[in-house]
Design a protein around this nucleic acid. Structure first.
Lengths: 333, 333
DNA sequence: CTGAAAGCGCTAACAG
DNA sequence: CTGTTAGCGCTTTCAG
């Protein structure tokens, strides 16, 4: 910058003004500065800039997902990145891999770089450690699920209601023996979905049977094995609810035709399988962009109490969830 | 930091040493400092640190993909992020959306934040503008395709050979009338694939016919429409090569059974469709981690001439590419 | 409209 | 083993 100033015959302060497009520099002076910048290939150093401009925003936000490679998270992150770009900010990204310790490390690496805010898909466990960062001005918005032990904005869906609706849908199509196959119950979204499953059964007067309930499924293969085991039961399920995408795919691969299936999370080609798969779809793009908009509102000074935005889900009936059960069509509960 | 020093009864320099885990501080002094850090909730300011430590690495790298939401790119970025984390670096991510202007903006936002290096999926067009950044120490590694006008490390696949192999495969299964459906020809990987297609036909003495060649397909629907048009031709193709994943999916949706299909890029559920889809698979995880390893080698001082790493592709025969053609089984060309 | 002085929080280099 | 001094590149503040 000093070099540019010298070459343009002005002070560094004038260069600064030109670089940042501030008003009140004579057009001719500005032109001289621009020329010097071009010749010398000067680029503003945002690290030094940030240091001096204390309290101002750094135009950097962090996104912490559990796994960037997961299509849902990738879509969410991409939507958030779009908003950030519109706002002139860049995005630091990290994967927690469902590990609180790792999440904490990444958050710390982000905050020490003075991010203005964080979009967080929180893993399970207490997030008290974020209090410090929030107290010192880092804004936090949670997506997909709220962070335990922390009051923040959050963008979620009604998991309980969505699961309840899916079970009601299966009951209406004549099923009463409905299995639940699920991921780890300590993930709050999964817990809510399971609770919705139980509530819907209870509401219809159908007893829950642990023989056709499985938790902790992480891999498609595990889910396939679990459902195969259930089908060997003397009183096998005629329909299955899968708690999320991975489990749904695993179940589908092992499911004989004639058994109904509704799964959480839509996926590419769901409509092209045989039978086409009925799913409860979320909108990751809406989730990411909503979270980002909330975050930037906070960064720009919104000091209202934390909000929770509940995004809608859609039951997309494609066939697998409409396979008739043994009790015939029922009125919707 | 001054506050911590005061509270621990030491100088800021000692705090710095403790914070950075440098040797040569009395354990007892260090303990006092640690206590003060905990009480005050102090966290190192990496912005100030970076400013002072000029010439040292910032432990920040940038990844620029065309679209984070694309599963191939998401897998690549995720693998690169893993490597970065092992190296103690954080990752800035951005999407170019195939727009050179936007790519340039994002690169500039990254370099002004002093990234140590960049993993780049370059869009088409000249990348001379990166010369400056490279001259001032920013390392650049390209993935998927090289950057025009720039000598950098690159991690690619043999697109020409892979397309050639796919066509040879179709010819060996009795096809001679083979259509090509492709994305924009100005994308270098796509151009290479098309060249491989032409070369394989020429090698087998089959004339290329522009009536069954289409370029510039960006959407699945466009690809579907294009292939439908070709099938209405008086001499319709008996087999199709799709230049990439999107095109392949579009083609598949519109293709009558009996027409063979080989597509670039593997996808989830390819094996579960009917017929299962034969693809030329790349390994995005290997590409991302190889690119990251090359990048960090450069960051750590590797000054050898730029290298291009060619990763293997695999033709995964699942059925759609083995549908027999009218000429019966042929020896492989 | 432009410039001079000071300092953001940290660490390199050098003393003790 | 610990401290002092200086300065990274920029911008805030105040003066012309």
């Amino acid at each position: 910058m000093k070099d540019v100033a010298q070459r343009a015959g002005v002070s560094p302060m004038t260069v600064s003004r030109v670089v940042n497009g501030e008003a009140g520099v004579m057009p001719e002076t500005a032109a001289r500065v621009h020329r010097a910048i071009r010749v010398l290939g000067y680029q503003r150093d945002d690290v030094a800039r940030q240091l001096r401009r204390k309290g101002q925003i750094s135009q950097t936000v962090g996104i912490l997902v559990d796994n960037v490679a997961d299509p849902f998270m990738a879509a969410l992150a991409s939507a958030a990145e779009d908003v950030a770009r519109q706002q002139g900010s860049v995005v630091l990204i990290g994967s927690s891999r469902d590990d609180l310790h790792r999440e904490r490390e990444v958050v710390s690496a982000f905050t020490s770089r003075r991010v203005d805010g964080l979009i967080l898909i929180p893993v399970s466990g207490s997030h008290r450690f974020l209090r410090n960062a929030m107290a010192t001005g880092t804004r936090v918005v949670c997506a997909d699920r709220p962070a335990a032990g922390l009051r923040t904005d959050a963008v979620v869906v009604d998991n309980h209601g969505a699961a309840h609706g899916a079970i009601a849908h299966l009951i209406a199509h004549g099923h009463r023996r409905i299995a639940y196959l699920g991921d780890r119950l300590d993930i709050s979204t999964i817990e809510e979905r399971y609770a919705g499953y139980l509530a819907a059964l209870a509401g219809a007067g159908i007893p829950a049977d642990q023989a056709i309930v499985r938790h902790g499924l992480r891999l498609g293969a595990d889910a396939a094995e679990a459902v195969t085991g259930m089908l060997a039961h003397p009183d096998p399920p005629t329909a299955v609810l899968a708690s999320n995408g991975i489990v749904g795919l695993g179940v589908r691969a092992a499911l004989p035709p004639g058994t109904a299936l509704v799964g959480f999370d839509d996926f590419h080609l769901a409509a092209q399988l045989d039978p086409p798969v009925t799913v409860i779809a979320q909108d990751p793009v809406a989730m990411g962009s909503t979270a980002a908009h909330l975050l930037f509102a906070r960064i720009h000074g919104d000091g209202s109490p934390p909000r929770t935005v509940v995004l809608p889900t859609r039951l997309i009936a494609r066939g697998s969830g409409e396979i008739p059960g043994p009790y015939g069509r029922q009125p919707l509960v």
